[in-house]
C-alpha cells in the first residue's frame, strides 16, 4: 500500500463507551445520537487546508471494546495525531488511556513533536468522577494538550480538532478551506470553553 502523503491521519482512542464516536460524528456530521452502539472501526474524511493547499483530514474512530495489540500498533504507527478520550464520569476510562499513551510513546519514540490531545468528554454530565484538574494534571504529566468536551451539547468539539491541528508545528493546517486566517488567529476567536495547552 503506497503512502498517501496527502492525508493527515488523526486516530481517536479511548475505552468503550466514553463517546469517541459521538465526538467524531458531532465534528464530521454535526449530529448527536443518544444511542448505545459500540464501534468496530470507522474512518471519516474531510478536506482541510494545509500549508496554503488542501489535504484530507482522516479521522479513525477506533474500538474501545476489545483491544488487539497488533491492530492498535498499526493505527498508532500510521497516525499523525492522536485524541485520547475518557469520560469525566469514569475514573477507570482515564486509567485505560495509560497503556495507550505508553504504546504511542513506544512506537513514536518522541512524543513532543506529535500532537496529542487528552479529552475529557461528557462535560455536560453532573455525576463527575474525574475533576478538571485531574485531567489537566494527567495532560501535564504527558506533556500533551487537554480539553473537556461534550459531544451532546456540542461544547468544544470543533475547537478540539482545530487545536489538535494547531499543535502540529510542521504543517500549518486549518479546518477552514479558504485558509485566509491562520490557525493561530482563528483559534483565539474560537476557543470559548476550557482549554489549556500544556
Amino acid at each position: 500500500m503506497p503512502e498517501q502523503s496527502n492525508d493527515y491521519r488523526v486516530v481517536v482512542f479511548g475505552a468503550g463507551g466514553v463517546g469517541k464516536s459521538s465526538l467524531v460524528l458531532r465534528f464530521v456530521k454535526g449530529t448527536f445520537r443518544d444511542t448505545y452502539i459500540p464501534t468496530v472501526e470507522d474512518t471519516y474524511r474531510q478536506v482541510i487546508s494545509c500549508d496554503k493547499s488542501v489535504c484530507t483530514l482522516q479521522i479513525t474512530d477506533t474500538t474501545g471494546s476489545h483491544q488487539f495489540p497488533a491492530m492498535q500498533r498499526l493505527s498508532i504507527s500510521k497516525g499523525h495525531a492522536f485524541i485520547l478520550v475518557y469520560s469525566i464520569t469514569s475514573k477507570q476510562s482515564l486509567e485505560e488511556l495509560k497503556p495507550i499513551y505508553q504504546q504511542v510513546l513506544a512506537i513514536k519514540g518522541n512524543v513532543e513533536a506529535i500532537p496529542i490531545m487528552l479529552v475529557g468528554n461528557k462535560s455536560d454530565e453532573t455525576q463527575r468522577e474525574v475533576e478538571t484538574k485531574d485531567g489537566e494534571a494527567q495532560a501535564n504529566q504527558w506533556k500533551c494538550a487537554f480539553m473537556e468536551t461534550s459531544a451532546k451539547t456540542n461544547h468544544n468539539v470543533t475547537e478540539l480538532f482545530q487545536e489538535l491541528l494547531n499543535l502540529d508545528k510542521k504543517r500549518n493546517m486549518s479546518l477552514n478551506i479558504d485558509g485566509k486566517r491562520s490557525g493561530k488567529q482563528s483559534r483565539a476567536e474560537r476557543l470559548k470553553g476550557k482549554c489549556s495547552v500544556m
Binding site: 475505552a15 468503550g16 463507551g17 459500540p38 477507570q92 486509567e95 485505560e96
Partner: peptide, 10 residues
C-alpha cells in the same frame, strides 16, 4: 449496563 463493552481494571 454495557456488559461486555465497558472496560475493567486491567
Amino acid at each position: 449496563e454495557g456488559v461486555f463493552r465497558k472496560p475493567c481494571n486491567n
